[in-house]
């Protein structure tokens, strides 16, 4: 039976859509049948991040309203075997879909044989958020090392809990190790400590993400960028493999700093 995972954050602009695109693509590359679902009706973006914007005919609203069949609404990504996108509608608003319809949709997608259904949540905690979590079995929370993003993540964790989605996992996005090192950015331990949830992965702030998004090619399909490795690690952990967290030396103590200082000149 497939698994439906919602990617959410509360705050906007922390990288939910990028995470959805890369996790979906990564899991497909690793041999799974995956659909990424955009629930941000009215502000759809998963299509452009995936580079599939020119292939949209039907959207999620057409599917739940049965204007088209589910299979017609799904866009097959020709670059990656087993990867599909269900785009959001752009001209309607969040009320165009009800949580019960989402529940039904996820059920149908599971029956369609998808191993993973990755749901991209809109920002906020209103109807769009409620829709996105309606059929989810699990939740991944994306945050950045900023006070506002972590605060919103905390709020969302509480809301998920109250909706019966327990033990969400955390993705810390856009970590800048140079800033962490000099003590001007919260590190992963600080964030975990405050939110008290399990860590799924850490994604460094990486120019490669901007470049790959410009091109509409998820970075995870590239070999070298650090962010691609980070997303591959996340995918492997989803598949149940034990993967060490990238060693980016963010917990360097005073002593080793001092030694470096003394030996640097």
């Amino acid at each position: 039976m497939g698994k439906a995972i919602v990617i959410t954050s509360g705050k906007g602009g922390v990288g939910k859509t990028t995470a959805t695109a890369n996790i979906g693509t990564g899991l497909a590359i690793m041999g799974n049948k995956v659909v990424v679902v955009d629930t941000d009706i009215g502000l759809r973006n998963l299509d452009v991040v995936m580079g599939l914007e020119n292939r949209i005919v039907y959207d999620i609203v057409d599917v739940v309203e049965k204007t088209c069949r589910l299979k017609q609404g799904l866009i097959r990504d020709k670059r990656f075997d087993g990867l599909y996108l269900l785009p959001a509608a752009q001209t309607k608003d969040k009320t165009a879909v009800k949580p019960e319809q989402m529940l039904e949709l996820i059920k149908e997608l599971k029956e369609e044989g998808f191993d993973y259904i990755i749901i991209d949540s809109p920002a906020g905690i209103e109807r769009g958020f409620q829709n996105s979590i309606a059929g989810a079995d699990e939740a991944f929370i994306v945050t950045t090392p900023e006070i506002s993003a972590v605060r919103d993540a905390d709020r969302v964790i509480g809301l998920l809990e109250s909706q019966g989605i327990h033990n969400p996992k955390l993705i810390v996005n856009r970590i800048r190790y140079d800033m962490v090192k000099r003590g001007d950015m919260m590190n992963v331990e600080d964030i975990i400590d405050i939110l008290a949830i399990d860590l799924l992965g850490v994604v460094p702030d990486d120019e490669a993400i901007v470049i790959s998004t410009n091109k509409g090619e998820p970075v995870v399909s590239e070999e070298d960028p650090l962010s691609a490795k980070a997303f591959r690690n996340i995918c492997n952990r989803i598949l149940g493999k034990e993967v060490e967290f990238l060693d980016l030396n963010n917990s360097e103590g005073k002593l080793s700093k001092l030694i470096k200082l003394l030996f640097s000149k």
Binding site: E146, I147, V150, R151, D154, R155, G158, V180, R182, G183, D184, M185, M186, N187, D190, I194, K254
Partner: peptide, 22 residues
């Protein structure tokens, strides 16, 4: 100056605001 590092300031502020939020 370590305790005055901005990340520690952020952490303390965050802890306080979350006490009320939660």
């Amino acid at each position: 100056k370590d305790s005055q590092r901005s990340k520690n300031v952020a952490k303390e502020r965050l802890k306080l605001v979350l006490i009320h939020d939660r």
